[in-house]
């Protein structure tokens, strides 16, 4: 008879690496639509940077903030790409896991814990965001919009911005037992306004005061401002930069705590 100690020891590897096994499963699933992922990863930045750099930039010949319009907009576009990918990978795959194919219940029938499923989903989002941002970065460098030396800090801030969006969305989606349009509403009324009102294309100060709160509450604005500091040295007090990081970290930590609780509640009935 297998002893109790042997059984506990047998689960030790999963106890340590369970989150990665979940990520591995999700990445394996992504291979099924890898072509569209690759095409959008390259296509999106090319289209945006070409349209803005060659088109819209001609209307702003003086640039913004002491740099060209393309240099101003490129770091924010990179962060908004991180947010878009984070939202995409944090909503429908979670709905699928709980509702459509119920794969999370299958995962949880193994030594994998609810927390490790959250960890694996987050790791998958982060890997996809890092890959997408790396491609985006390469193209911005080719357009002369970002210095090549800022690669690592830009990927780090994109990852933090991604976590600040992904974790709350994973937590929210996990609370849904049915999608009766809530996810589409999030896309239209949270992600899209965030993109438009987070100083992606113009400084937040250009907006009327009564709309600026959208930017302050938006992880994308905090990510974009930090990315601008890192990319072309945007002038900003140190405490503001620290505040951006703290806000992004708070979104991520609160999201992680809530996501963990909701996953435990849904999977441990």
């Amino acid at each position: 008879m297998t002893t109790v100690e042997q059984i506990r020891a047998g689960a030790a590897r999963t106890r340590r690496w369970g989150w990665w096994y979940v990520a591995e499963e999700r990445l394996r699933a992504m291979r099924g639509y890898s072509t569209s992922l690759i095409v959008t990863s390259f296509g999106n930045p090319l289209v945006y940077l070409f349209a803005l750099g060659v088109g819209l930039a001609t209307l702003v010949p003086a640039g913004i903030d002491g740099v060209t319009f393309l240099q101003f907009v490129a770091p924010a576009l990179m962060m908004s790409t991180a947010v878009t990918v984070a939202a995409e990978e944090s909503m429908y795959p979670v709905m699928m896991g709980f509702k459509w194919t119920k794969i999370f219940f299958g995962f949880h029938a193994t030594p994998i814990t609810p927390g490790q499923i959250v960890g694996g989903m987050v790791a998958t989002v982060v890997i996809r965001v890092m890959a997408t941002v790396a491609v985006f970065f390469g193209i911005t460098v080719a357009f002369g919009a970002t210095p090549v030396t800022t690669f690592v800090p830009m990927v780090v801030i994109a990852t933090l911005t991604c976590l600040a969006v992904a974790l709350p969305l994973i937590a929210y989606t996990a609370t849904l037992t049915n999608d009766t349009g809530q996810l589409a509403m999030i896309q239209r009324f949270v992600i899209m306004p965030m993109f438009l009102f987070s100083a992606t294309f113009f400084p937040l100060s250009q907006l009327p005061v009564y709309l600026q709160w959208i930017g302050w509450m938006s992880p994308l604005w905090h990510g974009s401002q930090t990315a601008r500091v890192l990319s072309y040295g945007m002038d900003e007090p140190l405490w503001t930069s620290i505040a951006h990081i703290v806000v992004l970290g708070a979104f991520a930590v609160v999201g992680a705590i809530v996501a963990h609780r909701v996953f435990v509640r849904r999977l441990t009935v």
Partner: peptide, 8 residues
């Protein structure tokens, strides 16, 4: 001991 049991 949920995870350990589930491993078997």
């Amino acid at each position: 001991d949920g995870p350990a049991i589930r491993s078997r």
